[in-house]
Amino acid sequence: MAASMIQLIGFMLSALGQFLISAATAMDMWSLQDRSFAVVTNFYTYSGLWNSCVGTSYGTTQCRPYFTILGLPALLQAVRALMIVGIVLGAIGGLIAIFSLKCLKMGNMEDNIKATMTLTAGIMFLLGGVCGIAGVSAFANLIVQSFRFTTYADGGFSMMGGGGIGGLSGSLTPRYTFGPALFVGWIGGAVLVIGGVMMCLACRGMSSDAKQRYDGMAYKASSHHTIYRTDPKPRPAFNDSYRAHSADGRMSNQKFDYV
Rank of each mutant, 00 (worst) to 15 (best):
G166Y: 12
G166P: 04
P232A: 11
L172A: 13
S171M: 10
L172C: 08
S223P: 06
V191Q: 00
I227N: 09
G185T: 10
W186I: 13
L172N: 08
G156Q: 01
G162I: 05
Q212S: 14
L192C: 13
Y219F: 09
P174L: 15
D154M: 04
C200H: 02
V191S: 00
M199I: 01
S207F: 08
V193Q: 01
D154A: 12
G185N: 07
V193C: 13
D154T: 12
A153G: 04
L172F: 13
G163Y: 00
A153K: 03
I227F: 15
V193I: 15
C200E: 06
G189I: 01
G216E: 09
W186S: 05
S171H: 03
G179M: 08
S171F: 06
R204A: 09
G179D: 07
S222D: 12
S169D: 09
G156V: 00
A202R: 02
G163S: 02
P174F: 13
A153F: 05
S169L: 03
M206E: 07
D231Q: 11
Y214V: 09
D231P: 11
T173E: 11
R175I: 11
G188F: 03
A221P: 12
G205W: 09
W186F: 14
R175M: 12
T177P: 04
T150L: 03
G164S: 02
R204L: 06
S208H: 07
I165G: 06
R213T: 13
